[in-house]
Design a protein around this nucleic acid. Sequence first.
DNA 1: GTTAACGTTTACGTAAACGTCAATGTGGGT
DNA 2: ACCCACATTGACGTTTACGTAAACGTTAAC
Lengths: 151, 151
Amino acid sequence: MTFRIMPVTASSAVSSEPRDPLRIYSIAELAREFAITARTIRFYEDEGLIKPRRQGLTRLYSAGDRTRLGWILRGKRLGFSLAEIKELLDLYQVDRTGVSQLRELQRRSRMHIEDLQRRRSDLDAHIKEFEDVEIQVAAELKKRGAETGND
Amino acid sequence: MTFRIMPVTASSAVSSEPRDPLRIYSIAELAREFAITARTIRFYEDEGLIKPRRQGLTRLYSAGDRTRLGWILRGKRLGFSLAEIKELLDLYQVDRTGVSQLRELQRRSRMHIEDLQRRRSDLDAHIKEFEDVEIQVAAELKKRGAETGND
DNA sequence: GTTAACGTTTACGTAAACGTCAATGTGGGT
DNA sequence: ACCCACATTGACGTTTACGTAAACGTTAAC
């Protein structure tokens, strides 16, 4: 039995509700839920990011597919390109039998975490700046209010 | 005298060194420092993100321009579009004489901070997942190591 | 004096991430 | 029988953020 690590699991579901793991979703359903278009979902499939089952031509999405889609969209919100997201997803689908492969996974995982932490620093700095602005504006408004009354 | 709030100041300089505030920079210098091309910098100017002085046709960048450029690039790293970055930068160049304008700034600033905090949540979740993966891989490697010796 | 390194504008090219038709099929309600 | 909502596959269009090349002008080095 192959060793499995799943970053995209029910526990990490983006849309929180604990759903039926056996449920299947239509493309329109997922599009509505995630506020994207069906075109987008099909595009992601073209790019190899999701591979839903098919009933004839019609796509059927599993709970796993849904979670995966949520994960993709979170990656997008974080500013990753689809290519990067694909790479990250692929990281977990590769065969993990060999120790050398585990080491490689470990290495890439670390690199990615370091990247994420750099982003976090950027983000924190950004937030801090805007919080400073808020404070200064509040102070100025208070001063104006004290001087002129209102507007 | 107009009330001024500057999010992009020396204190928030991206590239850390405390430089001469009177220094001027050539386009190639800035390009090297930030590891981008001159084309990119000119493009940002076309888009109204920076407005360097000119000596004839040649662009001369002040320390402020340089800091501003660093801020733009950090915004990019955070996944903002140039249009969004421009909007944020413009936010601070608008006349701030009126109280109503200060309130507007406060409102937009709050909205932006909320956006940034959502991003932070996404990012934290992402980091946590990959840290979990690291832990699991490490554990698996340890187990394998104990069982098989090495590779 | 010409080669190199820097600067300029104008303009066309491109990759990514979809949007937007068009043409078609399918199943359900009235 | 007809409409509506949903599905499909092309295929071309669009926006963003630059890359790249052409054609040209300075300044410094050899």
